[in-house]
Simulated assay, not measured.
Amino acid sequence: MSIEEFFSIPSGTNVFNNGADQCVALANLYEAGALQYPLPSGIQSAFQWWTEFSAKPPLVEFFIQVSENPKRGDIFVGRYGPYQAENGHIGVVERDWDGSTFGTMETGYWSEGKSYVKRLNRTMDYVLGFLRPKVNIFPTDEEEQNMIVIARTNAEGNMYVYNLGTDVVTHIPDDYRLGVLRKSGMHQWDFAQEAEFKSFREWYKDTFSNRSSSMSGIDTAAFSKAIAKAVNDEIAKRMSS
């Protein structure tokens, strides 16, 4: 399932995932199906996605905790008030915060013995916080234009990406990764060896460590493409040697 396919799930759909169709089923489908991230283990209640965040490696590796200004693609966690007190509630942000509400996709609303997907507008009341993917899955055109990424393949065949602009390495869904590569002018370069990947990373950091201070007053798109060309040339040289 792609990210766009997930957000196209119709309201009224019954989502059954990992043996349940309660609210967490939708969060599980989003994380494991759309984002392709591993699910946290040992969680019994929805609110624990927030309260036990630091004890769950899959959450720490792929998400950050955010307390305000939710944006599309965040996972939101709530408790009390309109949300269940005992287990809390979890869903996915579909519409950015507009100053008073944000839009959500949720499940756990029951009809004729089945839980169904519902879209709601939520305020910040009783929201514990938001889990935001470290990779910006809905960047603007300008952000995509200036985002240059290099992929690494691990022994299990999972694809990881090094974001040259932020120095972050993370797993990323194929559909998004290829879109960024296309817009940034990069080719798809996959390092199978960890040592070579680290070697390239150090080369890049040494070569372009002062790039951000050089951005003032120049064509940033042209500058980004110039870096992309230099990176492409360097990787092509390494791959052919």
Results as ranks from 00 to 15, higher is better:
I148C: 05
T13V: 07
S209G: 13
S214H: 11
A195C: 03
F223Q: 06
T140L: 08
K225L: 09
Y30M: 07
A230I: 02
A222S: 10
L178W: 00
G91W: 01
I172S: 03
K118Q: 13
L26C: 06
Q36E: 15
T220M: 11
A85W: 02
S115R: 05
A195T: 14
V60F: 08
M105Y: 08
F130A: 02
N232G: 13
V161L: 03
V60Y: 01
E144K: 15
A151V: 11
N154A: 04
I172L: 12
G113H: 10
K229N: 10
L128F: 03
I137W: 01
R119H: 08
Q188F: 07
W49C: 05
V161H: 02
L59H: 04
R72S: 03
R122K: 13
F138N: 03
K114D: 05
H89K: 03
Y37Q: 09
E196A: 15
G81N: 04
I150Y: 08
G73A: 06
V66Q: 12
R95M: 08
D74C: 04
G165F: 06
S224A: 13
T153F: 11
V149P: 00
E94L: 07
L26G: 06
Q44R: 15
L128M: 11
V93Y: 00
R132W: 05
R177K: 05
F76M: 07
G88K: 02
N17T: 13
L164Y: 09
W110G: 06
G19H: 11
Y162M: 13
R122L: 07
H89T: 01
L178D: 08
W49V: 04
A46N: 10
F200W: 13
Q65D: 02
I148D: 02
K237A: 14
F6E: 09
M239S: 10
G185Y: 01
R79Y: 02
S212A: 15
V231C: 11
A34Y: 07
G113Y: 08
L39K: 11
Q22M: 12
L128Q: 05
